[in-house]
């Protein structure tokens, strides 16, 4: 191919690339609502499309990791294009609320969900619940071995058999909850106890579930829905089970409206949609999470929310991660 032909090809490629990129960036005035979603597209794109069709609005969604999006919103400052932040855990919402970046929600939205699952300052509201459980392999964990309390895991019989994910937000929220409800010293003892039992560290929840399936470990500390999500993808049934302890932390995925949002009407409509029976049922069926409004039943494979003993805790406190991180680092876990 002669040089000029390459030059033409190159120019066409660059031109095509730029038009594609700039075409997609035409967000000025085009969107009626901009959502920053820490929940993945694979999960909620269909739901958002439904809302979009219902309202005939143009909605832009930026998908990312909850914490990175929260950091992005903080760095954007007053020029943030986001209207709504849909977070995977209450801690990130709490952090934005503490930085003064969330609006107070109207009464009908915040009362749609019972008290433990929304912000005490009414700045965010939970959409779906996620319980902390112990996932285990019944062939390698005898029924009498199953713990009733988290402290039971400190038994030497568990040496080298457990897995956790210290860098994961859900785990850190769990430790924060323990710290708030039981105090710093008890939490430190618990962490050191499990660390000394050679509890294995994983990057996230999913690898823990895989490790239990593979027999790498016998049990792991995870959120309840990973097991169900994985089971649905496999032809043969998964050989593992969830065990709910006596006290179960139920964290939430929730939403808040940013202080810089000029389109709060659309934002409120979106939150109202997420709290509708249709959306609550969607989370129940698609993600196996707990619906929170009380008008929809959880998935039949799950114990009812009312049967779970949740710790006496203000979920807003889960944003107080600094002491948790210091504690995890002090214990040489993180």
């Amino acid at each position: 191919m002669p040089t000029w032909a390459w030059a033409v090809l190159l120019l066409v490629l660059v031109w095509a690339g730029w038009t594609r990129l700039t075409w997609l960036s035409g967000r000025e005035g085009a969107a009626d609502l901009v959502i920053y979603s820490g929940r993945s597209e694979a999960l909620i794109a269909d739901l958002i499309a439904e809302f979009e069709a219902e309202q005939e609005w143009t909605i832009h969604v930026r998908y990312g990791q909850t914490a990175e999006l929260a950091a992005t919103i903080l760095e954007e400052g007053a020029n943030s294009p986001a209207d709504v932040f849909f977070a995977q855990d209450a801690g990130a919402l709490g952090a934005l609320a503490r930085a003064g970046r969330l609006q107070v929600l109207p009464t009908e939205l915040r009362t749609a969900v019972p008290a433990p699952f929304r912000s005490a300052q009414d700045q965010w509201v939970g959409i779906s619940g996620r319980a902390r459980v112990l996932v285990y392999h019944p062939d390698r964990v005898a029924p009498h071995e199953l713990p009733t309390h988290w402290d039971d895991l400190r038994d030497p019989a568990w040496r080298g058999r457990l897995g956790w994910a210290p860098t994961n937000g859900s785990f850190q929220a769990f430790v924060t909850a323990m710290r708030v409800t039981r105090g710093m010293d008890a939490t430190r003892d618990w962490l050191i106890g499990l660390r000394d039992l050679r509890t294995r560290s994983y990057a996230r929840n999913t690898p823990i579930v895989w490790a239990v399936v593979a027999g790498e470990i016998d049990a792991g500390l995870v959120n309840h829905y990973y097991l169900h999500a994985l089971a649905r993808q496999r032809a043969e049934p998964l050989p593992i089970r969830n065990h709910y302890l006596d006290e179960v932390l139920v964290n939430v995925a929730g939403v808040g409206i940013l202080d810089t949002s000029a389109r709060s009407e659309a934002a409120r409509a979106f939150i109202a949609f997420l709290l509708s029976d249709r959306a609550q049922r969607f989370f129940t069926e698609e993600t196996f999470e707990y619906p929170l409004t009380g008008r929809v039943d959880p998935h039949p494979d799950l114990p009812p929310l009312s049967a779970l003993q949740t710790p006496d805790l203000d979920l807003d406190d889960l944003d107080d991660l600094e002491p948790t991180l210091n504690l995890l680092q002090e214990c040489n876990i993180l």
Binding site: A67, E68, L74, T167, Q172, L321, T324, L325
Partner: peptide, 10 residues
């Protein structure tokens, strides 16, 4: 990564 994501401590 832990500082950014967990602590939001930029």
């Amino acid at each position: 990564y832990v500082q950014y994501t967990a602590a939001l401590d930029r």
